[in-house]
Design a protein around this nucleic acid. Structure first.
Lengths: 360, 360
DNA sequence: TTTTCTTGTGTGTCCGCACACATTTATGCT
DNA sequence: AGCATAAATGTGTGCGGACACACAAGAAAA
């Protein structure tokens, strides 16, 4: 390498052995104060930067990383995050990164807790999970902090607890953006509907923020008068119930001009509408590039998808652990991913990205 | 590392020395046919994968990469690509990547040629440049192929020549997307204007494709009747001329509903309009996140910016060279970057990305 | 038959760093 | 002063792979 400063160079210049330099660099063993100071000065002067390759090679340990994700079979949204995690691990495997994948059932806090305990029994070098269940997640987060396990949380941020980093969306802003996109197609006097197709939302702060962002947009935009309707529907997995619900929603709101579906289940709503003409002219904004959503986007049944970059959540999550554990650099507490606006005309570029993966 | 297969393991199992395995792996030196076959079989069986770290460390050579970009001082667009290149180099510097940056004047083919010759006189291990001048670029590309210099071209693709990869936008599709975005705000019977603020366009295939994509969109969309006006203006750097031009454009086209500026100079057009009210209601779609464009987007003077990911062009360009030179994996001939749709509400996420850069 | 060359294979060193162990120097105590 | 012990520092080996060099055996030339 061109003029790269090595430990040996420092040792020479400081008139000590490489062992001593090593002790200074790693704060291990005893070094005479004046020698230490001198060595540090030389390090500074020569601008030493550790060779990551040699360092990782010599370190020769495994770094066991655990990903604790919702079962992707139960909710396809999580397939993307999982793919991102795997991709990242592949990229840094040479640095000794080992992945253990654990999956919990999306709506079973007990299952999550069970696995959380399992993780703590055999503490990994790093952990990644989405804190879907508030109490249980906070507990896990605190346990990890106690045991010094650097932890990255994705998808949903959480107050309290000290994760290494949160990686995900800015919920509030995604609501604002959703409103803006719907606003393009709305006329004065129309109604828009915020539709939550999710289980009980008391823990789901991100949905609350999303909704707030959405409403705030219209509060601040004074050009048109738009009525906002907010609806929760929990039985989204029961097709007939959902059909009845949808039909009623459309029937009862003749002035409906737009629907904002706050998670990745826009396709479920479209699925449920038997008579596709009954919502002609109603604009639909949803989230995330699930296969079903993509199909509906292409067939114009969905107008916009906001891409939350679920894949990148996983990817950057692992990379943040890498940055912390291997590069030993500081990691931002919050890393917001871009809210990509996806339409029929640009969706191809968001499917199957990562041609030339992401390194650090 | 967990069960990682090493050369030593292969050697043992095949009953030869590591030197012989090395010779087989690198096709160097002479190996008896039967031995070679056996070693290959063992490699296959154990699923050997070279340890990139150890390999790069032992290789101990510099890889000199040259970036040949338009002078960013002359055209701020190129600042982003430059930043991407630098960021990528930083990420892979440990693998011996060294960068030499050369800059040519954006509208001087002679200057480009001069530097091209300079590059060839001292052949680098990899080259990256945007083929702005067709003839000159094609010549350079062919020379590089002859001398076996892997070359990545960015921003503009070129027919003929065999680069390692092209990284950039799909011009045609960006035109389609621009049309789609304008279409949101257009009413029946209005006019849209395609505005090229660039020097003579005979070499600029990407502008031609962009225009074609734009027109094709409206050809295929039968809902409204929209008239399309296409205008070139070369003296965009002369403020008064541009002012006169803009004024005339607006005056002569009272039904103008949208303007599609085909490159990153949308801000120049807005700058030139003295009476901001004269284009009230006219939608503007431009390209790229230059500081000036961003300001106008935030103040609603520009409605949409299509982000061509100029930064990523540079980043992925270098990473592709890395993939080829270090990872020795194949690289896609064409790597299209996403056409991000940027509005006021999501722009923050596109500015200053790369919190946790990309590694391999 | 001896010498020289070719072919095939094994061995050793180095890349930069981490870490264990060896060695030297300083300090305290009798 | 002499010795035990602690503090400070130096040396050596290995991580996995690349590559130069050493060396043996057989073939070709003398």
């Amino acid at each position: 390498m061109k003029n790269r400063v090595r430990i040996k160079d420092i040792a020479e210049k400081a008139g000590v052995s490489t062992g001593t330099v090593d002790r200074v660099l790693h704060n291990r063993g005893k070094v005479a104060p004046d020698v230490k100071e001198n060595v540090l000065a030389v390090i500074e002067e020569l601008g030493y930067q550790r060779n990551l390759l040699a360092s990782a090679l010599a370190y020769n340990h495994n770094l066991n990383i655990v990903s604790l994700l919702p079962n992707p079979e139960a909710d396809p949204y999580w397939k993307q995050s999982q793919a991102g995690v795997q991709e990242a691990i592949r990229a840094v495997q040479h640095y000794g990164f080992n992945l253990t994948q654990l999956f919990f059932e999306p709506n079973k806090p007990m299952d999550f807790s069970r696995l959380a305990k399992q993780v703590l029994n055999n503490p990994p070098d790093g952990l990644l999970f989405p804190p879907i269940f508030f109490q249980e997640s906070l507990w896990l987060l605190n346990q990890c902090q106690e045991k010094n396990i650097p932890t990255v949380i994705i998808n949903t941020d959480i107050k309290g607890g000290k994760p290494l980093s949160y990686i995900g969306q800015d919920s509030y802003q995604s609501g604002v953006l959703g409103a803006r996109l719907l606003d393009f197609g709305l006329n004065d006097g129309q109604t828009v509907c915020i539709l939550n197709l999710d289980y009980e939302t008391k823990d789901a702060h991100h949905l609350i923020y999303k909704e707030r962002g959405f409403k705030d947009y219209f509060k601040n935009s004074l050009e048109k008068k738009i009525e906002i309707l907010s609806v929760n529907f929990e039985s989204f997995h029961e097709k007939t119930k959902l059909q009845i619900f949808s039909k009623k929603l459309l029937a009862e709101n003749p002035k409906l001009g737009g629907i904002f579906i706050t998670n990745s289940r826009a396709y479920k709503f479209i699925d449920s509408i038997a008579d596709k003409k009954s919502y002609a002219g109603i604009k639909v904004v949803g989230f995330d590039l699930l296969a079903s959503n993509i199909d509906y986007l292409k067939s114009n049944a969905i107008n916009f998808l906001i891409n939350q970059n679920a894949m990148n959540q996983g990817y950057l999550g692992i990379m943040s652990l890498f940055k912390h554990l291997v590069q030993k650099e500081s990691v931002e507490r919050q890393q917001y991913l871009p809210l990509d606006i996806v339409v029929k005309e640009n969706i191809e570029y968001y499917i199957e990205r990562n041609k030339v993966g992401i390194i650090i």
